[in-house]
């Protein structure tokens, strides 16, 4: 009996991640509003919003830009950065690889420079994280502590209560 109960419990735990992923999220917040919430939580120094040219350069498109906001630190000693990309439906699946490619290239192409001048910052880029919240794809290049606060704030504001 105990063994059966154990296996039933273990089996049901397998579905938890899927449940988390399918947890409904709001989709009515603009990327800008969510970015403001995230910026406050991350307490980013000298936060600056990327302009249209910078965004287009990041995601490699000359087409109309999506509902996307990126904040980065204008302080040359900090690699702090995060981005909110609001999309819908299946488009989410195409966004994650675009952002992953951007983060990986930024890390690989500039590692020598960062390791040389701001070595304590390189790990933020190396450990950059991308998360999907329904219609929102969110990435963060932040310290572990800031990243935790940042994603907690995003989750709190997007979760449907």
């Amino acid at each position: 009996m105990k063994r059966t109960a154990f296996f039933l419990l273990a089996f049901s735990l397998l579905f938890l991640p899927a449940c988390r992923a399918s947890q409904p999220y709001r989709n009515d917040l603009s990327a800008q509003r969510l970015a403001e919430i995230g910026a406050e939580a991350a307490a980013m120094e000298e936060a600056q919003a990327a302009n249209a040219e910078e965004l287009a350069d990041m995601i490699g498109t000359e087409a109309e830009l999506p509902d996307m906001v990126v904040y980065y630190s204008a302080n040359g000693n900090s690699l702090d950065e995060f981005g909110i990309w609001r999309t819908d439906g299946d488009a989410v699946k195409t966004v994650v690889p675009i952002l992953r490619s951007y983060l990986d290239k930024t890390y690989e192409n500039n590692r020598a420079y960062y390791d040389s001048y701001i070595p304590r910052e390189t790990s933020k880029l190396r450990d950059a994280e991308i998360r999907v919240y329904g219609s929102y794809v969110v990435y963060a290049v932040l310290s572990a502590e800031s990243r935790a606060r940042f994603f907690a704030a995003i989750e709190e504001n997007l979760a449907v209560n």
């Binding site: 302009n51 350069d57 000693n77 701001i118």
Partner: peptide
């Protein structure tokens, strides 16, 4: 120059913060 003493060329360079040498103030 930036306070860090270095700069990398990318699309964000025009918006990067530097020290304006006459006023000593930080600006893009």
């Amino acid at each position: 120059a930036a306070r860090s003493g270095t700069m990398m060329l990318n699309r964000r360079t025009p918006s990067a913060h530097v020290v304006e040498p006459r006023s000593g103030k930080e600006m893009t």
